[in-house]
């Protein structure tokens, strides 16, 4: 079981969280200028990384905030935890902050971690 450190509540057991899939995915726009290929990429294509991953988690049975976790998908080591509005604090990270947390989904997407 993972022990994740919610940026608001501190370390909590995995049972309190929902996995939200890969993070730092921006919705392409304006919509009229988005090609089918771009839209399909936005909706369906994910890195599915074996290694250091940037992913969203929801503290569903806690403060109900979305936040980001940098986690190694092989070792499960958590490398960083940061809020939706923050860039990944790891050095040499290229992921941009997702933006306004109110624009992130209200419900969990994707399957289990």
């Amino acid at each position: 079981m993972l022990l994740l450190e919610c940026p608001y509540c501190g370390p909590r057991a995995e049972i309190e969280f929902r996995y939200g899939g890969e993070s730092h995915i921006r919705r392409p726009g304006p919509h009229a200028e988005v090609s089918d290929a771009q839209w399909a990429d936005y909706l369906y294509n994910r890195k599915n990384l074996k290694g250091e991953h940037r992913e969203r988690w929801l503290h569903a049975a806690g403060c109900r905030r979305w936040f980001n976790v940098a986690r190694n998908t092989v070792t499960h080591q958590v490398l960083a935890v940061y809020k939706m509005t923050e860039p990944c604090p790891l050095p040499d990270d290229t992921g941009a902050p997702v933006g306004d947390p109110s624009m992130t989904p209200g419900t969990a997407m994707g399957g289990a971690a």
Binding site: R12, A13, E16, A61, G62, C63, R64
Partner: peptide, 10 residues
């Protein structure tokens, strides 16, 4: 105080 889980109940 906190919201949390007790067994499978919130």
């Amino acid at each position: 105080c906190t919201r949390t889980m007790f067994a499978k109940a919130e």
